[in-house]
Amino acid sequence: MNILVTGSNGQVGSELQALADAYPQFSFIFVDKKDLDIGHEEAVHAFFDTHNFDYCINCAAYTAVDQAESDTETAYLVNAMGAKNLATACKKHATRLFQISTDYVYHNHQNTPFKEQDATSPKSVYGRTKLEGEKLALGNHTETLILRTSWVYSSFGNNFVKTMIRLGSDRDQLGIIFDQIGSPTYARDLAKAMLDIINQNPKEFTGIYHYSNEGVCSWFDFATAIFELEKIDCQVNPIETKDYPTPAQRPHFSLLNKGKIKATFGLEIPYWRESLKACLELL
């Protein structure tokens, strides 16, 4: 089974590289922007014309959420048109496509875990461009599986966990938002889930699915857990979103219901605190 991984130096792409040896039945090609710019349609098709892939996992994305508010064109090129370019190339070459998306597509007043059929209402450029990428990918290639995930962190790259460790080690106290609720996702768990699905090579491979770690917390709870597990002596003070304004709006509640992916593919999803422990051990 030949697998192309785009955005290979990001958090999820790096975790896929780390897991590659555990899946000897797969042959991987890892590419980053310097190897393949997914926003360049001709380059994408030329690349596919010279390779043979069974699956493509698109980890390439414009994820600078606040910067996207002023860099709309680039965010759209990568998150929307990049997904379309991969989808059309995958369709031409009978390659199945994993398109990673985000909880930011949900931004309303719902207070129960979101299911895949719930209404989307993104309020940020990032959320809108990722939702457009979903539509373009599925609209151009039926064998596309959309994975909406949330609050991704890893031992690779820059993320909330690493930022908290750095700031908590330098300061006596921090104000962390308590009125945004969701679930962290350890990028290694997400990467493993995709590889386990590929290993099944399911007959049906299409539609939208949710994946995040089990459980629920706020950013305040997440930071508190990081300091507790790392034994960092830093006081965490809960603050409201309005006390920490950012260019992009974040959803106040974006907890994802994972029932569909567990029932369809038989996945067991770890609890967020256990995955956090595993990541911190690597750090």
Rank of each mutant, 00 (worst) to 15 (best):
N2V: 00
I3Q: 02
V5Y: 05
T6Q: 08
N9W: 00
Q11I: 10
S14A: 12
Q17K: 13
Q17N: 06
A22I: 04
Q25P: 01
I29M: 14
F30L: 08
V31T: 10
K34V: 02
L36V: 02
E41H: 11
V44A: 08
A46M: 12
F47G: 03
F47T: 03
F48S: 10
T50I: 11
Y55H: 06
C56N: 05
T63M: 09
T63S: 15
E69T: 05
D71V: 01
E73N: 11
A80D: 03
A80K: 02
A83E: 00
K84H: 06
L86I: 05
T88A: 06
A89V: 06
C90S: 11
K91A: 08
K92H: 13
K92A: 15
H93P: 02
A94E: 15
F98K: 06
Q99K: 13
T102D: 13
Y104S: 12
Y106Q: 05
Q110C: 08
P113D: 14
F114L: 14
K115C: 15
K115L: 13
E116A: 13
E116F: 09
A119S: 09
T120I: 14
T120P: 05
P122K: 02
K123C: 08
Y126H: 11
G127Y: 01
R128N: 13
T129Y: 07
K130Y: 07
K130W: 08
K130P: 04
L131K: 11
E132L: 15
E132F: 11
G139Y: 04
H141Q: 12
L145G: 01
S150Q: 04
S150E: 03
S150W: 01
S154I: 01
G157V: 01
N159A: 04
N159P: 00
V161D: 04
V161I: 07
L167A: 07
Q173H: 10
D179P: 05
S183T: 07
S183M: 08
P184M: 06
A187C: 01
K192F: 01
K192M: 07
M194N: 06
I198V: 14
Q200V: 04
Q200I: 07
Q200A: 10
N201F: 04
F205I: 02
I208E: 01
I208Y: 03
Y209A: 07
Y209F: 15
H210Q: 13
H210K: 11
H210C: 10
Y211L: 14
Y211Q: 07
E214A: 15
E214W: 07
W219S: 11
T224G: 10
I226A: 09
F227C: 12
E228W: 00
E230M: 12
E230A: 12
K231F: 00
D243M: 15
P247E: 14
H252G: 13
K258H: 09
K260L: 15
I261A: 13
T264H: 13
I269C: 15
P270C: 09
P270M: 10
R273F: 02
L276S: 00
A278C: 08
C279P: 00
C279H: 01
